[in-house]
């Protein structure tokens, strides 16, 4: 048997074949996409991982002036119970004009923390304790004059000397570009508990 070639059918059938081949491929591509999207989606963190991703911290044992650092999503999160004197230093650093971003214009924190305290409740600072420069864990130095004679209290990074105030706002002259990141969290002073839920997506960790 010889097969009748395209030319013997004329152009009509060629167009028809081309059209059908294109249409079938197009629908086939949609089908392939329909399979591919859920498959790739399945590699997202599972609900179990997400359930384990938020950390709740009991605030009762943290006395004024004290801090705790808890692991959250494999990152250290510091919670400081700031005294009125400590809060007063935040204004002082701003008046001195030594901060790179005193008004927290860079979205290193969720909108509800965009204030000089960088927190939901002024007394309670909740932030990721990772230096914005190259990911080291800064030392917490709350004592006045402990790092330099002018030191009002804050964070000092052991790696490259970045300095931050008690709201983790970066001090001029530090290699770190931005303030330290603040995650999304919920805090209740009634229940005395803080729940760190997820990373604030716009924040730059390090």
């Amino acid at each position: 048997m010889t097969i009748v070639t395209d030319s013997e059918h004329g152009h009509k059938n060629i167009t028809r074949r081309r059209f059908l081949a294109a249409a079938t491929s197009a629908v086939g591509a949609v089908v392939a996409g329909m399979v591919a999207v859920p498959l790739v989606d399945s590699l997202e963190p599972t609900a179990a991982a997400e359930a384990a991703s938020s950390t709740t911290v009991d605030l009762t044992p943290i006395e004024p002036g004290m801090q705790v650092t808890v692991p959250w999503q494999k990152k250290p999160v510091i919670i400081i119970n700031r005294t009125p004197e400590m809060l007063a230093t935040l204004k002082e650093t701003m008046q001195k004009g030594i901060l790179k971003d005193p008004l927290c214009k860079v979205p290193q924190q969720p909108p509800y923390c965009t204030n000089m305290y960088r927190s939901r409740v002024p007394e309670w600072y909740v932030g990721i304790r990772i230096c914005n420069h190259l990911c080291c864990i800064p030392h917490y130095r709350p004592k006045k004059g402990s790092v330099a004679p002018w030191w009002l209290g804050g964070f000092h990074c052991p790696c490259h000397g970045s300095m931050y105030d008690l709201s983790a706002r970066v001090i001029q002259g530090s290699p770190a570009p931005h303030n330290m990141a603040v995650p999304e969290y919920e805090l209740s002073t009634e229940k005395m508990s803080a729940t760190i839920t997820h990373m604030y997506p716009k924040a730059h960790l390090c």
Partner: peptide, 13 residues
């Protein structure tokens, strides 16, 4: 069971 309940589209796979 985690695949069936907790993974996105895990049941489908």
């Amino acid at each position: 069971q985690g695949i069936m309940y907790d993974t996105k589209w895990g049941w489908l796979i």
